[in-house]
Amino acid sequence: MDRPARRTASRRVLTAAAVVGVLVALAVAGLVRSAGTDGPVTDGERAQAVAASLRCPTCQGLSVADSGSPLAKSMRDIIDEQVAAGKSSEEIKGYFVDRYGDWVLLAPRAEGGGWVVWAVPGAAVLVGLLVVSSLVRRRPDPDTGAADELEATGPGATQAPGRGSQTLRWVAVGGVLAASLGVLIATNLDVRGEGELATGNVTPLGASTAQQQTPPEDAGQTQDQDAESAIAAMEELQAAVEANPDDVATRLALASAAFQGGRLDVTRTQAEAALDREPRNVDALMLRGLAAESKKDTEATSALRSFLRLAPEDHPAVPLVRGLLGEGS
């Protein structure tokens, strides 16, 4: 190759590299913008995602989101309500797991033995690549290989590079493949930004805020408290509950704050969530009863009755509840 030709060639390479570079940058920008347009997850989308992850009990293999059966419709209503009440996706799934068992989850949990099913695909790819890379080697001498099988190979085999560099290339190919699969699976996993999946147990807010709260038995009496500050407390407590969904005391504090703030719906879901964990918790029963008293729902009445049955006689709220139920003390 003479000099000018080489110069032209290198200029061509440079131009090509520039074009590809710009295109890659634009494509990445496109992907970023695409990810951005997903925006914050709306309640509807979150409810849809939860419904799609649950198995419809009366159908065969369809999700709650896909099924037209009446029971799936009821389950979608429940999901919508719980999403609206601020329950996390994991909590809502937990609600159904409590009733239907792990069977109801369409994707098994990666805990206990369940991780096996998640590890299998990656393991299969890795084992396969290892086997394949063992097949790549410098061509054997013609007289050591069985020559009768060689007629199919084309000419030009002499250019084969040494074994070391080939292995390196295979390792590189395998690495790139594994990495991109990993990224894909991860993005696939969180593509709709289900934040609580990733961050569920990270925020260490729970314990400290939970202790400062007023005991829930005050809820019925301290109506004078400023509703605005109750709402501010609610937000903090909401975070604490999400961080630590099994902490019944925090939930009850949130329920109580919500009650003061006039958010009876939150009180109800939180009291119910607390009852799911501790069915005989008298404070939870009372809050559950108070939360819906105005709507005349019978569950509330039964919660209040259970409260009276279970609460110690000297519980400060007993007279109030008796009054609400129309029973003399």
Binding site: P57, T58, P70, L71, K73, S74, M75, D77, I78, F96, R99, Y100, G101
Partner: peptide, 14 residues
């Protein structure tokens, strides 16, 4: 009517 109790009891079929 809305199947709430049915879900609460974890029913699979009727």
């Amino acid at each position: 009517v809305e199947g709430r109790h049915a879900v609460d009891w974890g029913t699979f079929g009727i």
